[in-house]
C-alpha cells in the first residue's frame, strides 16, 4: 500500500481540515491576539498535528494489514484459501473484509466438495458400468468364437472395437478425477509393449503391418496398465492411418542420463506440420481424421492427460506423407532409484 494511494483516498478529510486551519489562522490573525502572528501560526500547527496523528496511525495499521494480505496472496498457490492465512485485523473495515472473505471461502469450498462428490459418484458409476458391460461383451465374443463363420468373424471385429471404446471411456473418466488410482512401480518397458502387441495382434496382422520392437530392455517407473492403454491408442492410430503399401510399425527405446525415451514410429500418412501442435487437443481430428472419417479426436487427448498424471512427457514428430513418431519420455530422477 502506497502512501499516495492512501492520501488520495483521504482527500476530503485533508481538504476540510486544511480549510478549517486556514480559516482559523486567518481569523486569529484578524483578531490580532497578544501573541501576534506567531501565536496564530502555532495554534494552526497544533491543530494540524492533531489532525495528522490519527491519519498516520490509520495508515500504519492499514498498510500492515493490506501489505501482508497482498504479499501472502501473491505467494499462494491456491488463492481461494487466502482467508485462512490472515490474522483478524484490528480495524473495523478490515475485520469486515476478513469475515466476508472467510464466508466466501467457506461457500466456495462447500460448492467444490459438492462438485467433487458428484464427479466421484459419476466416475464410480462409469467404472461400474464399464465392468458390467465387459461381461456381455465377453459372452458375445465367446459365442461368436465358438460358432466360427464369416459373419461371426466380422462381429468379433466390431466387438473388439466396442471393447476398445469402452476402455477409452473408462480411462477418460479416470483421467478427469483427482483420485489417484494408478500404481507406479518398477517395470521392464518391454513387458507392457509385448502385451499390447499381442492384444492387438489380429488388427496388426490384418493391416499387414510389419512390427519390430527393439532395444526395450529398460527399466521404467510407471503404471503398466495405464501405459498399455496409451500404447494401444498409439498403435490403433498407426493402424488407422497406415500407409497403403508396406506399412511398418517400429517401437524402440533409448536410455538417457535422466530420462528414458520410447518411440512409437510408423510410416503412415503423417500429420501436416500446421496440425502437429493441436493433435493432443480434445476433439481435434485433423485432415487425416476427416479423410478417414473415423476420428473422434479423443484418443490422443486422453493419452496426453494420462501421461500428465503419470509424469510422462508425450510429443509427436511427423513428416506429412512419410510417417509419424510419438515419443514418450519417462522421468528417471534420483528419486526413482530410492523407490
Amino acid at each position: 500500500m502506497k502512501i499516495t494511494d492512501f492520501l488520495k483516498d483521504k482527500i476530503p478529510y485533508i481538504l476540510s481540515h486544511l480549510t478549517v486551519i486556514l480559516l482559523t489562522v486567518s481569523m486569529l490573525v484578524a483578531l490580532n491576539p497578544t501573541g501576534g502572528v506567531p501565536f496564530s501560526l502555532l495554534a494552526g500547527s497544533l491543530y494540524l498535528a492533531g489532525a495528522l496523528v490519527p491519519l498516520a496511525m490509520e495508515f500504519y495499521r492499514k498498510q500492515r494489514f493490506y501489505d501482508l494480505l497482498i504479499r501472502t496472496y501473491d505467494q499462494m498457490d491456491r488463492k481461494n484459501l487466502i482467508a485462512e492465512m490472515l490474522r483478524v485485523p484490528d480495524f473495523w473495515e478490515g475485520a469486515l473484509l476478513y469475515d466476508l472473505l472467510r464466508g466466501t471461502n467457506k461457500a466456495y469450498l462447500d460448492e467444490m466438495s459438492h462438485l467433487k462428490n458428484q464427479q466421484t459418484e459419476y466416475r464410480e458409476y462409469i467404472e461400474q458400468w464399464v465392468h458390467e458391460i465387459k461381461t456381455p461383451i465377453a459372452a458375445s465374443k465367446l459365442t461368436a468364437q465358438n460358432n466360427r463363420s464369416a459373419a461371426t468373424g466380422r462381429i468379433i471385429e466390431d466387438l473388439e472395437a466396442i471393447e476398445s471404446y469402452v476402455e477409452q471411456a473408462l480411462y477418460y473418466a479416470r483421467s478427469n478425477t483427482v483420485a489417484k488410482d494408478y500404481f507406479i512401480k518398477e517395470i521392464r518397458l518391454e513387458a507392457p509393449i509385448y502385451s499390447v502387441l499381442k492384444q492387438d495382434a489380429r488388427q496388426l496382422i490384418e493391416a499387414g503391418m510389419a512390427v519390430s520392437a527393439e532395444d526395450l530392455d529398460i527399466t521404467v517407473y510407471t503404471d503398466s496398465k495405464w501405459l498399455e492403454f496409451i500404447l494401444h491408442q498409439l498403435i490403433i492410430n498407426s493402424i488407422k492411418y497406415a500407409a497403403a503399401s508396406d506399412p511398418r510399425l517400429t517401437l524402440s527405446a533409448q536410455e538417457k542420463a535422466n530420462c528414458c525415451l520410447l518411440f512409437v514410429a510408423d510410416n503412415g500418412l503423417g500429420i501436416p506440420a500446421n496440425e502437429l501442435s493441436r493433435i493432443f487437443d480434445k476433439g481435434f481430428s485433423g485432415t487425416n481424421g476427416r479423410l478417414r472419417g473415423r476420428s473422434t479426436g479423443m484418443g490422443l487427448y486422453i493419452c496426453h492427460k494420462l501421461c500428465d498424471k503419470l509424469g510422462i512427457a508425450i510429443s509427436a514428430a511427423s513428416v506429412y506423407g512419410c510417417g509419424t513418431t510419438i515419443c514418450l519420455t519417462f522421468p528417471k530422477s534420483a528419486m526413482t532409484h530410492i523407490v
Binding site: 502387441l197 495382434a201 489380429r202 496382422i205 490384418e206 499387414g208 503391418m209 510389419a210 512390427v211
Partner: peptide
C-alpha cells in the same frame, strides 16, 4: 495365413507376411 500368423505372433517375435 492370418490365423497362422496369429499363432506364431509370439511375445518377442512379430511375424509378418514375408
Amino acid at each position: 495365413r492370418n490365423e497362422l500368423m496369429r499363432y506364431l505372433w509370439d511375445s518377442e517375435l512379430f511375424v509378418d507376411d514375408n
